[in-house]
């Protein structure tokens, strides 16, 4: 009970942060998908995604965010790197040059004719690396007091 008398009242900030992080995450996804023919891509998308996580970390705290997103960000970064390098090795299976990418047009429901390419997987890997590395660095700097 005692704790509740001098709690730091952050209602305004926390409410807005929830909303704003939603906007930021949307932008991150948009940037990630737009990256093929216009500015954006995995790196920027990952950075924006990481900035949403950083906002949540600042406004809330490590414990809450950990509870909400129970992943090890080091593993996320490693997985992303694996994905990116993996697309390079994927080209070897098809007897192409290392790092060759393929693309084709598909008729998806709702989206219509869409260009899908293996670059997307590479970019997803980059995004995961960026998110993992940024959050790991920030957590490790702030964690040990």
């Amino acid at each position: 009970m005692i704790k509740h008398r001098y709690r730091i009242n952050n209602v305004i900030l926390r409410t807005v942060a929830k909303l704003v992080s939603l906007i930021i995450l949307t932008l991150a996804v948009y940037l990630f998908l737009a990256g093929h023919h216009s500015p954006g891509g995995g790196f920027v998308g990952g950075l924006v995604l990481a900035s949403a996580l950083v906002l949540l970390l600042i406004v809330f705290d490590i414990e809450t965010v950990r509870k909400g997103i129970p992943v090890d960000f080091k593993k996320v970064a490693a997985f992303g790197a694996l994905l990116s390098v993996g697309t390079g090795f994927g080209a070897l299976i098809f007897g192409e040059n290392f790092l060759s990418q393929a693309f084709d047009y598909f008729n998806l429901p709702f989206f219509g004719k869409t260009e899908l390419t293996t670059v997307m997987i590479f970019e997803a890997g980059v995004a995961l690396v960026v998110v993992g590395v940024v959050v790991t660095i920030i957590l490790s700097i702030s964690e040990d007091e």
């Binding site: 490693a78 790197a81 694996l82 390098v85 390079g88 090795f89 040059n97 290392f98």
Partner: peptide, 22 residues
């Protein structure tokens, strides 16, 4: 074109990443 040329660099990179999981 000879993909083996990339291997001396890319195999260690891939290994370094996989070792993180192990």
């Amino acid at each position: 074109m000879n993909n083996l040329i990339a291997m001396p660099m890319m195999l260690p990179v891939l290994t370094a990443i996989i070792l993180i999981f192990l």
